[in-house]
């Protein structure tokens, strides 16, 4: 009898795990703060998560892009430059897989910030985009004031780029996943095929999460 009870217990536990599995959600990263707000006449503590601040850049078509251009979108951000001889080709070989997976999805975008705006002018970015074989508006290559880009990078929790000898740049190869509320929901090594495959899975989870939230 005892044995049977244990068995049932184990099965129940297993079932509980299973159902938790199904509604997998992604964590929210970054600094957090709490704020006491008044809700229905009661004081409740609300958690304020770090968000990506406003920005203004130009894409490969010469269009001005702000945070508003990404309203209602899940997006992935990275930092690169077109003449990067080291990790960028690997990152963008991997990002192409992400692009191809989601290019027909209306609420998903990729934004790649150039950290070398002096060289990476709009026509240079366009040529690079054509070389990569990307069209339409699902992957934007952005450039703007160098300081704006470098300051923004820290909001994505990546290392601030540095200029090194020979006019090269040292920077991280992370892909950072942002939800519709501008929260950081994942950070992946863009040079690692497996980690990027994991990100593709996480994007699907995140899209499912926001779609059910809207349905509720």
């Amino acid at each position: 009898m005892r044995k049977l009870a244990t068995l049932i217990g184990v099965i129940l536990l297993y079932a509980a795990c299973k159902s938790e599995d199904k509604q997998a959600t992604l964590p929210i990263y970054g600094n957090r703060d709490t704020k006491t707000i008044t809700k229905d006449g009661k004081k409740v503590v609300d958690t304020i998560y770090q968000t990506i601040p406003a920005f203004k850049f130009v894409n490969q078509y010469g269009d001005s892009i702000t945070q508003n251009s990404l309203k209602g979108d899940i997006y992935v951000a990275d930092f690169f430059f077109t003449t990067c001889p080291s990790i960028c080709p690997i990152m963008h070989r991997n990002m192409l897989k992400v692009y191809n997976e989601f290019k027909n999805v209306s609420d998903f975008k990729i934004i790649s910030h150039s950290i070398d705006p002096k060289h990476d002018s709009v026509p240079v970015l366009k040529k690079y985009a054509d070389g990569l074989g990307i069209t339409g508006n699902s992957w934007w290559l952005l450039q703007g004031k160098k300081d704006d880009t470098y300051n923004l990078s820290t909001s994505y929790l990546v290392r601030r780029p540095e200029e090194s000898a020979k006019e090269l740049f040292i920077h991280d190869g992370y892909f950072v996943l942002i939800d519709k509320q501008k929260h950081i929901r994942g950070s992946y090594d863009g040079t690692d095929e497996k980690d990027v495959a994991r990100m593709i899975g996480d994007i699907k989870i995140l899209r499912a999460e926001t779609n059910t939230q809207i349905a509720q």
């Binding site: 963008h92 070989r93 192409l96 070389g131």
Partner: peptide, 15 residues
């Protein structure tokens, strides 16, 4: 390899 790829596949019309 970073540019030309593990299988020598290159990268689109860039490499």
């Amino acid at each position: 390899q970073n540019c030309h790829g593990t299988k020598g596949e290159g990268l689109s019309n860039l490499i």
